[in-house]
Design a protein around this nucleic acid. Sequence first.
DNA 1: AACGGTACCGGCAACGTTGCCGGTAAATAA
DNA 2: TTATTTACCGGCAACGTTGCCGGTACCGTT
Lengths: 345, 345
Amino acid sequence: MNRSGYRPDKPATIKDVAKALNISISTVSRALRNKPDVNQETRQSVLRMVEELEYQPNQIALSLITQKTHTIGVIIPNLDYFFSMAVRGIDDMALETGYTVMICQSNESYARELVNTQRLMKGHVDGLIVSNSSDSINTEQYQRLLSKNFPIVFFDRVSSELDATSVVLDNISGATQAVTHLIEQGCRRIAYLAGPANLSISQQRMIGYKHTLEKYGLAIDESLIVFSEFDREFAYRSTLALIDSPNRPDAIFGVSDRLIVGAQLAIKERGLRIPEDIALVGFNDEPVVSLLTPPISSVAQSAFEMGRMAAKLLVEQLNSEHILPSQTIMLKPTLIKRASSIRKP
Amino acid sequence: MNRSGYRPDKPATIKDVAKALNISISTVSRALRNKPDVNQETRQSVLRMVEELEYQPNQIALSLITQKTHTIGVIIPNLDYFFSMAVRGIDDMALETGYTVMICQSNESYARELVNTQRLMKGHVDGLIVSNSSDSINTEQYQRLLSKNFPIVFFDRVSSELDATSVVLDNISGATQAVTHLIEQGCRRIAYLAGPANLSISQQRMIGYKHTLEKYGLAIDESLIVFSEFDREFAYRSTLALIDSPNRPDAIFGVSDRLIVGAQLAIKERGLRIPEDIALVGFNDEPVVSLLTPPISSVAQSAFEMGRMAAKLLVEQLNSEHILPSQTIMLKPTLIKRASSIRKP
DNA sequence: AACGGTACCGGCAACGTTGCCGGTAAATAA
DNA sequence: TTATTTACCGGCAACGTTGCCGGTACCGTT
């Protein structure tokens, strides 16, 4: 064991308090936890001495006994606008409920997701809040933990194979709102920048996209569907290709604002007009899209609320005597219409 | 003590391993830590049993002995682009050096900063990485910890009164580059959106701003200096006021991109040209500014590197036998020139 | 045959805290 | 007066791990 390293002046322990008052450790302990078997005078003197010595109970020792650390582990793919807001929501709820938050970023890498899970479990977090990385294929690690009844709450990017508590957006509704709006604006050839194919959000939004096209009797043209990483540069190049192809789209729906921003750059580069030639709708409603020229329409959701809700569900499980049945909370998105998609007055 | 709440199946302990092999706990412990006093066969059987029982050493028990948790506490004002990147750098270095990171956001509130410090100290973090909130006036809490030789590294927003290890940007250089550039482009009445008055970054950039004006023989007009929170809306209104004032500026330098974006909105609103009527330079080089019309010049810095460096210094302190002298690392910024400030070909 | 050395192993204390049990003195009841 | 309750307190074990000390075979030496 590494015993090296600098160690600051040791803080007072319950033992120091007891010694200073010439009473037993047990009595101090009882006095502090308001147990009945303590003389009021004794209790008062203990409290005074605690004040004087600046005694604070050692959480590590308590953790050793209770096997609880009051710590929540968070695994997210990155810290972009969406996840930053989600983390803020998690931190917010954690503060309210007396937990602290350990954050690990997987950088969209499955390998790193594995490492981070190990890291957090070793640190003995009481539970986990997870959003999958984009190249996350295997869920075995979480399956194993869940089978041992270790509490995990998933959010946003979830796994369909896992029967676990999760908080997600109604992605089908979001995509439906977006595509319906585009069709109402007269668009007929609507492309979809779909993002990573194995992510739940991509798939769900795809369903909304396709269903809406079908509903309005429009053909589904697979050449208008482009999968990719969440990479603006890639979206830029894909959009150039779409524009230069024989069947140029008259609208583009993006699974995320990051991609739709790349698309906008490409359209401007080619000198086409937005929304007259190509209309745009993104997803997430990041602040940036309202600042662009023209401002881009986007499906808004509250990452903050999602994070708060995920933390709330986890803490409920942690505070519960027994195992709670897994549930899925679905939040509602709202389409924010801006100049990038409004053709009709 | 709260003993309620659900607890998953207990993992194997060293005792279980010992019992399964009918040997003593001590021997298992020695075998696992590659001590010499162990028979090779015994060691092998221990390793096999460890594998079988999926034994993992209990970090909490180790922490109780060593008083170390291998955890770093991070206190930041928010999770905007800059701090997200910094956190990524911290997390990166932490992963390399075997630490995990606890993050608390103060939401620019001093009160919450206090609470978060308590929270992290209670969780027994080994050290702290801190960037002050904008209404952080008192540094007594950190002073107290530092006087007890508790390791803290400050970054970006530091306190001049604290003699502590810190990582900062050469803010004077950044502001000097920005203002010099504006003057070279022919600007003579340069306003400064200064941000919160008590923040080190505001003050340092102010020094660079004023010195550069003096160097070029330009008068310092206090009516062109505006303090505020990091609030886009406020910057928007301030800029409108500047524009409508009798001595309208011909350039605006902003302590952060968030403020300069608000300024841009105001200038567009009034129908003035950028950079011909008013040139703009921001700070941080957030991705958004390169996407705006026109793209905004900005002083670029690497928040990622800053975070990594802060974590590196902290870990060095944590791994050191003795107390290291406090030091200040100063990183160099680079001005990125874009259309918002380029008047001459 | 007695001795010292080596190789290996088990027991105990400690880290800081709480739960449980048992004990002592005073106060009350018989 | 004696028995019994009440009020209060201390000791011990345990949580999981490591460091330290002491012990026991077995080996080779002289």
